[in-house]
Design a protein around this nucleic acid. Structure first.
Length: 823
DNA sequence: AGCACGCCGACT
DNA sequence: GTCGGCGTGCTC
């Protein structure tokens, strides 16, 4: 083999060009593609870069070639398959290798000179610590935290990264990210009986001693009734649950803990089983599931992605579990993608139960050590390694060595698409490419296919497997369209409810059944308005009206979070006649409590689930029937399985239909069908009431008839006519600037250039729905590209234009980027 | 993305 | 006379 003198490396920077370093002679035997190396970049910055290519072509140019400083890994930390995937992502999503590298690797694996380092307090310094390492550790112990520059200075080295790597492996130091989230969010306090009260006698004595402390006695008794003396005997109860259900305060509990009658312990919540359906071991598939299972298997040799279109509650998960089992038996890895980890607790618990510690969860908000562990686990075969990775978007970028199956659950979800920062990839589409590279099977599962995927079925790129019946004889819900305008005219509206919805809720409550109400807007009122002059309070940073949040008694911007107090009067005419307009979840909650004062009502939206575990608590309370009516935003549409929901109400379908976007009908259909799927219980048909002022709207009629095909076909002819996806590819060019005039100038210039290149297939420049966010003015230009061979070169041309506009004089401070397949 | 270099205004 | 504002260009 010829000597390999040079290495092209990937730097964790948004730079398009490759950078070449010389490999010193004594490194040449150990360097490999895919290992990390430390390189100096610029005058004083050091990075851990990734070796992309080895060669002996002297680069041309008038610069000095620097040496590689150190090799960090004995073996590659990425796979050849990943490099192929990254190359595809760079071309397809108009991003750089560096950006993909940054997005893919957990931060502990990409030390940068900016990284903050601190001493790990749990580390015991061994006696034989090498002098340099010991000195550094003592310094860190004293200073608390240090950045890499100061460590370099301290050690008198150009780069201390290799020393740090060793200390990191010894677990002696912590780096920044680890500090930020070192406590995993997975634990929750639980209350146990103290070991001192091991027998009935001791318990009796304890209760006796609390004679004078009524509250304490009550709480202890309540605890015993819920645990030891409960029919489903259990050893503990969640602290939150105990306090909420007993209605006794935290201080009383604390005294009992101090008296050592009770005992508190943090327990990992991930292992907990909230669901009421008990142990669900893997069981046999029913007929429909078996049919789907064997159909999917038939497509395995063809390499075609499978779209699994199964109505809500058709039991897709069981089919997945069976398919996963099979792959595991073959010794293959499985990737199970979910849209948002936080909202899929039920599913994760189920998979965890089925596969135990063979299943690992991966998510960008996970703490870093855990992410590194999963990364290495996925890469190397170990005695105990994760064979199934359940994760959101970024899990598609893990270093799979032997992938056999990818499942993309809820493939229609737009949270698979990353907005910001680059790479702006869609994990669903990345998964399809990844499967191709590994020759693995990929299944896109959903109850409401995205039109893109269904189009791919129609054009024979994907195979279709359908599950048309719901599990356990639950029939599809009855769909009712309720005319709000008519009811208003006849003065039949009860606040926000049509008579149809009101009656249904009343009946459900009477029968002790549950209700879900959906309104895709949080807060109390979307905006306030002056009744005299029409003035509307707006955000000072963004061009949007402020949403009124009653419980905060404040106005909140939903784009930047800016919060201000309520105005005393109109900002223009000083009239005091300020009215609320429209309604959000908060208002619905309030109005309902007036109409149904006896009902237990809860709200589920971004505001009410912000606290840790608040989401899980709500789900638990709803499942255990502590809540009668759940009011929520999109969140209530996500894969929750409830047993006692008989009525689902969509408060305002118009708001969905009238959203100004070419996908609004697709979205409306998906949202309505998904919430509707929550209605229906064993042997009883559920009911869905859609409130609208457009009762004859074709989309609503099609949703009501469960007629997906007709809706799809009608939309397809429109998309074709107006050159939208899936017939055309969209590239959104986004321009941002703090100065409005500069932005407009640049945007017009850009649009003119693009028109020269692509003619009429250009829309804009236009302000997006919100023309200014956090003091940045924004404009968008939409490019519609034909799906042909020129696609790649067209994207390259767009990128060149973006590059050229950014480097033009006066355009400093201009942010410009391309978003391929925007959502 | 950073960061150094460089060219014009307000200050001891 | 200098300090510092940020616009421009480079990093193997």
């Amino acid at each position: 083999m010829t000597e390999q003198l040079f290495a092209d490396v990937i730097l964790p920077l948004p730079l398009g060009d490759m950078f070449t370093y010389r490999i010193p002679a004594d490194f040449q035997a150990n360097i490999k593609v895919g290992v990390r190396v430390i390189v100096q970049f610029g005058a004083r910055k050091f990075f851990s870069a990734l070796v992309y290519k080895l060669h002996n072509n002297m680069p041309v140019g008038s610069f000095d070639i620097k040496d590689i400083d150190a090799i960090l890994d004995p073996e590659p930390i990425i796979t050849p398959a990943q490099i192929i995937l990254w190359e595809w992502m760079v071309d397809y999503y108009c991003c750089t290798m560096g950006e993909v590298y940054k997005a893919a690797l957990p931060s502990a694996l990409k030390l940068e000179s900016q990284t903050k380092v601190s001493f790990n307090p749990n580390f015991n310094m061994p006696v034989d610590m090498p002098g340099e390492e010991e000195a550094l550790l003592l310094m860190l112990q004293g200073h608390g935290q240090a950045n890499i520059q100061s460590i370099n200075k301290f050690l008198g080295k150009k780069s201390a990264l290799s020393t740090l790597k060793i200390l990191l492996e010894k677990n002696a130091v912590l780096i920044e990210e680890k500090l930020a989230d070192s406590y995993s969010a997975k634990v929750q306090p639980f209350i146990f009986l103290h070991p001192k009260l091991a027998n009935d006698n001791a318990i009796r004595e304890a209760l006796e001693s609390l004679k004078k402390a009524k509250k304490q006695q009550q709480l202890l008794e309540f605890f015993l009734a819920e645990t030891l003396y409960h029919e489903e005997k259990r050893p503990n109860i969640a602290k939150k649950e105990l306090l909420e259900q007993s209605g006794i305060s935290d201080t009383v509990l604390r005294t009992l803990l101090e008296k050592e009658f009770l005992h508190l312990q943090e327990i990992e919540v991930g292992r907990l089983d909230f669901s009421s359906d008990g142990e669900q071991k893997i069981f046999d598939l029913n007929e429909a599931q078996n049919k789907a299972f064997s159909e999917i298997k038939q497509y395995q040799p063809t390499g075609k992605p499978v779209l699994l279109h199964g109505v809500t509650a058709s039991g897709k998960t069981e089919v997945y579990i069976k398919l996963i089992e099979e792959q595991l038996a073959l010794g293959k890895q499985v990737l199970y993608l979910v849209p948002e980890i936080g909202l899929t607790t039920q599913l994760i618990n189920r998979l965890k139960r089925a596969f135990g510690d063979k299943a690992g969860i991966y998510h960008s908000r996970f703490n870093d050590s855990e992410r590194v562990e999963i990364w290495l686990n996925t890469l190397h075969e170990r005695e105990k390694s994760f064979e199934i990775i359940i994760g959101a978007r970024s899990a598609a970028l893990l270093p799979f060595r032997n992938l056999g199956l990818i499942i993309v659950d809820e493939e229609h979800e737009n949270s698979y698409k990353q907005f910001d920062p680059s790479p702006r990839y869609n994990a669903r589409d990345v998964a399809v490419v990844l499967a191709q590279i590994h020759r693995a099977q990929v299944i896109l599962g959903t109850a409401t296919p995205s039109f893109e995927s269904y189009f791919n079925v129609k054009t024979n790129k994907y195979a279709l497997v359908e599950m048309k019946e719901r599990f356990q004889n639950i029939s599809l819900p009855e769909m009712v369209i309720a005319d709000v305008r008519e009811a208003t005219k006849r003065k039949q509206m009860k606040s926000l409810l049509t008579p149809d919805l009101y009656d249904s809720i009343e009946t459900a409550l009477k029968n002790e059944e549950q209700v879900i109400l959906f309104q895709n807007r949080r807060g109390f009122a979307p905006y306030l308005q002056c009744g005299t002059c029409g003035w509307i309070p707006k955000c000072k940073n963004c061009d949007v009206s402020l949403t009124y949040h009653k419980h905060l008694s404040a106005l909140v911007c939903h784009y930047c979070g800016h919060t201000q107090s309520l105005p005393d009067g109109c900002g223009e005419c000083h009239s005091e006649d300020i009215k609320t307009r429209g309604f959000g979840t908060e208002k619905i909650e309030e109005e309902l409590s007036l109409i149904f004062p006896e009902a237990r009502i809860a709200r589920m939206d971004m505001d009410s689930t912000r606290a840790k575990k608040a989401y899980e608590r709500l789900i638990y309370q709803f499942e255990s029937k502590q809540i009668d009516i759940l009011v929520g935003t999109q969140m209530v549409t996500k894969g929750l399985d409830f047993d006692h929901v008989s009525v689902v109400g969509i408060l305002n379908a118009d708001q969905l239909l009238n959203y100004p976007d070419f996908r609004s009908f697709e979205r409306s259909y998906q949202l309505i069908a998904q919430v509707s799927g929550r209605a229906g219980r064993k042997n009883k048909q559920g009911k869905v009431i859609i409130q609208t002022t457009q009762p004859k709207h074709p989309v609503l009629l099609e949703v009501a008839e469960h007629n997906f095909i007709q809706l799809f076909n009608r939309q397809m002819s429109e998309r074709q006519l107006f050159k939208y996806p899936p017939y055309f590819r969209l590239v959104k060019v986004v321009l941002k600037h703090k100065n409005r005039d500069r932005l407009n100038l640049a945007a017009n210039q850009m649009a003119a250039k693009l028109r020269k290149l692509f003619g009429f297939n250009i829309l804009g420049p236009e302000y997006p729905l919100v023309g200014r966010i956090q003091s940045w003015y924004q404009k968008e230009i939409w490019v519609k590209l034909e799906r042909d061979q020129k696609l790649m070169s067209s994207k390259k041309k767009i990128l060149e234009e973006i590059k050229s506009i950014k480097t033009q004089p006066n355009n400093a401070g201009l942010v410009a980027y391309a978003d391929v397949d925007p959502m």
